[in-house]
């Protein structure tokens, strides 16, 4: 049991940090520009495919350096020549623009890299178990992912609190008009943040593409969950995104182990109801099956009862 808990904690930490890398960029973009970027997970996918392509050509380590800036550049271009033009039509149009973009990126990936998964293996240097505890191994690559994402978290925190541009971004998070009035070039800051957020998503893709599977559906499977993270964490709050990422990953990981259903719960208080009819399945669904849909339930509840999120400063 101890073994199970330790490894579940470690694994949820790995997944949580990957989610954080994705959601940190998204929450910055969302809170600054008000754009719910549906294409954010597509940038993550692009990162994975760029990483795959570069690592087959010149190796994984150069890919780790080159691919994220490439994705960031692409993101900046999208902001400059796409999103900025749509801005005048309002948030709905901006949002729909990103929906369409996600659509095009997915088809583009289908077209260039094919519709099946690609072989994107763990780099040789990291392909060994780093430690073994009670018969279970923990792979070096997972440790490496953990290391990278913690480093990114520290760097991001440093940039946002200790540098000039970070302070401007922070100010623009809460009072964009005021920052504009003070003479800062807010559109340029927007482009920077959008590009930076995309680059982070790209980095998550480069390392996550190995950890998970690099395939055209990878954006669609991860997309909605990132929204859950930023909603639960609260708008504009990096700490919130951090906490929410870890929390959601832990929920998903630990729910797997709980094999109780609604009827078990009722039996606990002494009710033993045999329910028939068309909804009888509802009673026998075990909590362990619901792990990955719990986040959506969580999101809906948060939005209804605490729209600020866990640590948000203002409502969405």
């Amino acid at each position: 049991m101890l073994e199970y808990i330790i490894f579940s904690l470690l694994n949820s930490l790995v997944l949580g940090m990957l989610l954080f890398m994705l959601s940190s960029g998204l929450t910055l973009i969302f809170s600054m520009m008000g754009v719910l970027n549906f294409a954010h997970a597509s940038f993550y996918m692009l990162g994975a495919y760029f990483g795959y392509q570069i690592s087959t050509a010149i190796g994984f380590w150069p890919a780790l350096i080159i691919a994220p800036p490439l994705v960031g550049l692409f993101g900046a271009l999208v902001e400059r020549y796409g999103l900025r033009n749509v801005h005048k039509y309002g948030h709905v149009a901006e949002l729909l623009f990103t929906v369409g973009l996600a659509f095009i990126i997915e088809e583009g990936v289908n077209l260039i890299w094919g519709r099946n998964a690609v072989t994107y293996p763990i780099p040789k240097l990291l392909d060994f178990p780093i430690f073994t505890l009670f018969n279970t191994e923990f792979s070096a690559y997972r440790m490496f992912m953990l290391f990278i994402s913690v480093a990114i978290f520290i760097a991001l925190y440093w940039i946002l609190t200790r540098t000039r541009i970070g302070l401007i971004i922070q100010a623009a998070l809460t009072h964009p008009q005021m920052v504009n009035a003070l003479g800062h070039n807010v559109p340029a800051v927007f482009m920077l943040v959008f590009g930076g957020g995309s680059a982070l998503a790209g980095l998550a893709g480069v390392i996550g593409g190995i950890f998970l599977v690099t395939e055209p559906a990878m954006a669609a499977t991860l997309g909605p969950i990132v929204f859950v993270v930023i909603v639960v964490g609260g708008m504009g709050s990096l700490t919130g995104a951090f906490v929410a990422s870890l929390l959601l990953a832990a929920i998903q990981t630990f729910a797997v182990g709980i094999e109780y259903s609604l009827s078990d719960l009722l039996a606990l208080v002494g009710i033993r109801a045999e329910v028939g009819g068309i909804l009888k399945d509802l009673w026998r669904i075990q909590l362990s099956h619901t792990g990955p849909i719990l986040p959506y339930l969580f999101m809906v509840l948060i939005l209804m009862f605490r729209p600020k999120g866990l640590m948000g400063k203002r409502e969405t």
């Binding site: 073994e3 579940s8 694994n11 991860l222």
Partner: peptide, 19 residues
């Protein structure tokens, strides 16, 4: 049973199999 196409990291399940 795992939800269809929704699981990203199977390691919790693997931990269960291991255990």
């Amino acid at each position: 049973f795992t939800p269809l196409g929704k699981v990203k990291d199977f390691s919790p399940y693997v931990a269960q199999i291991q255990a």
